[in-house]
Amino acid sequence: MSKRVLCELCPTECQLDNYQIGGCRTRINKDGVLLSLVYGKPCAVAVDPIEKKPFFHFLPATTAFSIATAGCVLGCKFCQNWQISQANPEETRNQDLPPEDVVRQAAYYGCRSITYTYTEPTVFYEYMFDTARIARKMNIRNTMHSCGYIKEKPLRLLAKYLDAADIDLKAFTEDFYSRICGGRLKPVLDSLVALKQEGVWLEITNLVIPTLNDDMKTIREMCRWIVKNLGPEVPIHFSRFFPHYRLKDLPPTPPETVLLARNTALEAGIKYAYIGNVRGEAENTYCPQCRKLLIERIGYMVNQNRLNNGRCKTCGTTVAGVWQ
């Protein structure tokens, strides 16, 4: 019955028997050949503000052409997009949008960047890779919002065409990853380091879930690891959890917890810590030196941007990010 195929894309490393589909739901072994079922078949296409990704230090107040296909390499119980991430590509309503058309449409809508997001871009790696190469030629930036659960070789290859990545660091314990997400923490940390080394602009999102990962000691540990391994200039977004999918029995995260996490991060030496899914001043960017307001945001909207060539107008301190 033909030979097995090893998928080397994500750390799950599925050994696929003939006609078996991987855990990501999108890759199949057909007679010994590994095929992607979702190449050029996005199930979600939209033009979003880049702040929604969330990227706060990357071309603020621009739009990102966002695409996603069905499937995910993880299976987080709290997934906000589980209707498509935990669906098979044959179940979702898909568009026909080859890489050239993605870039063409992005240009048509005046987007400065294309974001591979919503579900998990790793599962449509080939589609993302080809689109990114074309976009690079057309001077459109490439960003992804990923869980970082990808093996090093494909990640480094992709990084050549990637301008920014927002990685979901879902928690800082192996236990959380194995129990809640069906994955492991270590490969995600490795991915973060690899992206940093490849010079990709990095932001990190951490969804704070009551009782599961809201322990401030662990958050402090996580922030210290970030400062040590990725530097203090990596922005962190602490996001508020709302009950979804298989975690409907938990309450939404109290806004104070999210704020507390942000403060913990700042204390640990992180320069730019934000909150997500909660309105407040902690959505704004302040100068790490003189504490003056630099970018004022309300949700995904940028109210004012007082950065001058990536520097604070008042004290001239450079603020890390991609501003042009």
Partner: peptide, 10 residues
Amino acid sequence: TKNYVQYMET
């Protein structure tokens, strides 16, 4: 598949 069942084996 080894990497799915890591938690199951703990």
